[in-house]
Structures are given as C-alpha cells and as structure tokens.
Amino acid sequence: MMLQQLLNGMALGMAYALIAVGYTLVFGILRLVNFSHGAVYAFGAHMVVFFIGMNFGLLPAVVFGILLSGLLGVLIDKIALNPLRKKKSPNISALITTIGVSYIIQNLLVLGFGSGRKSFPKLIETRSIMIGDAQITNIQLLMLVVSVVLFLSLTVLVKYTKIGLAMRAVEQHETNAALMGIPTSFIISFTFFLGGLTAAIASVLIGSHYEIVYPTMGMMIGLKAFSAAVLGGIGVFYGSIVGGLLIGLTEALAATWFGAEYRDSVAFIVLILVLILRPMGLFGKKGLNKV
C-alpha cells in the first residue's frame, strides 16, 4: 500500500516538476511569475488531440503539438512581455499581462474545442507492471522515465553548453550579459521556448495518464506546479524537481491517510509550513523581492 502510494506520488511529482521547471526558468531570468504557463500546458494537450484528429499519426502529432507549444511560449514573450521590458514597466504589469494571456489562450481553446472534457487518445496500450505488491502502469513508468531523461538533458543544456552558459549569464545580470555580446532577447525567447516545450510534454504525459483534456486543465495543476517551484526555491533549477516530488508524494500520502478530498489542500499546507521555516524555499537564494 505504502509502496503503491510512493510510486503514484513519484510519477505525479515528476510531472509537477516538469511544469514547475517552466515557472522556474522564466522566473530565474525575468523575476516574473508567468501565469500563462498553465494555459500553455492546456494548449499543448489540445494541439496533440487536434493533430491526431487530423490523422497526422501519433508520433508526428505529439512532436508537432509540443513544438507548437514551445513556439507559443516564444510568441507570448515577443508580443506581450518583451514590449513591457523595453518600457521598463513595473513587475506587476507583466504579471497581469500573463494573466490576460492565459485568459486569451484558455478561451480560444474553449471556442475551438468546446469547454467540456474530451478523451485523450491512448498513446500506448495501458498495461500494469507489478513491483512487489504494488503496481505501476506503463504510462506512469513512461512519465517517470521521460521526466528523468528530460531533466538530465536540461541539466546538461544549462550546465555544459554555450547556450546554457548564456542563460546563466542573463539570469545573473541581463544588462551586463548584453554588454558581453550575449544576444539576450534570443536567450529569453529560448527560455520561453523551453518552458512551453516542457509544459506540453508534461500535458501529454498527464493527459495520457488521466485520459482526458479540457481547456482549464492547466489551472489547478499550474498552481500546484508553481507551488512546487516556490517550495524548491523559485529560480533554482533542481529546486523544482525536489518541490515537485515533495508535493506529488505528500498528495499521494495524504490521499491515503486523510482521504482523497483533502488531497488538494495538503500540498498547500506543506508549502506554507516550509516557507515559514525556510522563507526562500528549500534551495532558494536571497534577495527576491518583486512579484
């Protein structure tokens, strides 16, 4: 029973972490909470459904959907956020702008696909694998494996490539990075691209696990992933993995101990307790004052 919940929690937690990393990447560079991220997540799942419906074939549909979400991320930055940065607008303007963007995306999805729940096509035939007396579906296993692989590649990207170095430089000091000849606006776009990409991958994984999609699917999970990012210390890359896992696991355990109805609140209770004990999150850096 315990092992079972741990497995469930880990699979879900890694998916949270995948979404959380999008919040953290953008926050790291722009000190901005990107509230449109949850909508991009929903967008990704819907695009995949759309392309499968257009008979693109499974794999191309998934790839197209994911790439398109990455591009949507870039578009959001270029159209809505970049002009604000140029005007040196206060941070809260950017925050409200991302809320506006999320309204637009969510309701365009409603207009295009209807507001109801639609079934997400099966990517693979669901099968269960027994580990001891606990079982895990192959989709959960896929969630775990894909997340781990993705995180490893992101880590390599950020730590060992030229573009990763540039990202870290922009995170430290945008103006100075620009003075060193780093194309900062490209780096910011690239970060949004990565954010959209990871969100869409997460939505495909979670979509195939729950087998449903709907336009507001990014709301609650977006808030939880955001919490996971803050819990780990927003702006810290590996913090979102730990935060995501922690929230996934506490949710799974809370569901067994207190009943499923308390599941959604336990994550937030843990979050608040952690923040009171460690105000900057588990691995957070000091000096983040802007919302």
Partner: peptide
C-alpha cells in the same frame, strides 16, 4: 508570515491559504 516572507513567497502563501479555505 509577512514578518519572514516577502514578494513572490508571500503571494504564494496567500494563494495557498485561499486554496485551503476552499478545501
């Protein structure tokens, strides 16, 4: 918590509070 938290961290606590109230 405002004694210890600021900025985004405080905002997330308020968000979590509202979620807990709803549950």
């Amino acid at each position: 918590p405002t004694i210890r938290l600021s900025g985004t961290y405080l905002s997330i606590v308020t968000l979590g509070f509202a979620m807990i109230v709803q549950v």
